[in-house]
């Protein structure tokens, strides 16, 4: 029974991994660009949730939306002021831009919020659900289900709507899209907004049940790399499956080997993937 509970917990956390990783994979699929600051976006989403709860009050819907909106705006600003200018420049500029941004955001967060771990004050979500002997904390359950729903929503947005087609058109061929009357700049700004927004809301969902400090951004950023590599670069469904798998692997290795090994196992998996199947489960090399 304990094992079943570990599995459920891993999948629920994995759902959140899937959500923020789909943002990273969207950017990669759109513009062959790796965002090293993606984990910091998740971390900022957590602090936005905290500030909203402390200053304004309100339930998960309020702070979840606030985090998504704040990070959406940040994503668009980052694109317009930084990424747009470096994305066709030398490789060094591409990588340094978001790498520097990650440092800037991380250490500014350390400076403002200190290195201490914080957690959300008790919000309206609480209690545990007993399903056939498996105890599920309601906050994690709600967060996990919401994360999966949002990831699916992002996938549907990309595949079933006009905006999604426009985004994919720009990804496919920027010039041809431009000839069809699509403004690539606007679409790429939207992609950055969506990616950062998904990271923000994922952070808010995680903040409900886990304490955090500014250093979690680094861990989540690397987790997102592993998820995206496993799922295949550019594939949102791939990120979803891979997120769930990584969550599961982490939970099981923490259960069997001990909590300190959960990150080691995941990064070792990443190293193995690079050797054996760098294009991931669903990707094309």
């Amino acid at each position: 029974m304990l094992l079943a509970q570990v599995i459920v917990g891993g999948l629920l956390l994995g759902a959140i991994y899937a959500l923020f990783s789909s943002g990273l994979t969207l950017i990669w699929g759109m513009m062959n660009f790796i965002n090293f600051a993606h984990g910091e976006f998740v971390m900022l989403g957590m602090y936005v949730a905290l500030l909203v709860v402390v200053w304004l009050g309100g339930g998960p819907a309020t702070f979840g939306f606030a985090a998504a909106f704040a990070l959406f705006v940040l994503g668009v600003i980052v694109y317009a002021s930084l990424i747009r200018h470096v994305m066709r420049g030398p490789m060094l500029a591409q990588i340094l831009s978001t790498f520097g941004l990650a440092l800037l955001l991380r250490y500014t967060a350390f400076w403002i919020f200190s290195a201490n771990f914080v957690s959300l004050p008790q919000v309206s979500l609480s209690g545990t659900l007993n399903v056939g002997g498996i105890l599920m904390p309601v906050p994690q359950l709600v967060a996990g289900v919401a994360a999966i729903a949002l990831t699916l929503g992002l996938h549907l947005l990309l595949t079933r709507t006009t905006v999604g087609s426009q985004l994919l058109a720009v990804a496919e061929d920027r010039n041809a899209a431009m000839l069809m009357g699509i403004r690539p700049d606007r679409m790429q700004a939207l992609a950055w907004g969506l990616a950062a927004g998904s990271a923000g809301i994922a952070g808010a969902l995680m903040a409900v049940s886990y304490p955090w400090s500014p250093s979690v951004g680094e861990t989540f950023g690397l987790t997102a790399f592993v998820v995206v590599t496993l799922g295949g670069f550019g594939s949102v469904p791939g990120a979803m499956y891979a997120g769930l798998i990584i969550g599961l692997i982490q939970a099981l290795s923490a259960y069997w080997l001990g909590p300190i090994y959960k990150d080691i196992v995941v990064y070792a998996l990443f190293a193995a993937l690079l050797w054996l199947r760098p294009q991931g489960l669903m990707g094309k090399a």
């Binding site: 930084l82 060094l92 340094l96 831009s97 440092l103």
Partner: peptide, 11 residues
């Protein structure tokens, strides 16, 4: 400061 310098350099 380092982060800021790196971002400005890249940009």
């Amino acid at each position: 400061l380092y982060g800021g310098i790196i971002v400005l350099l890249a940009r």
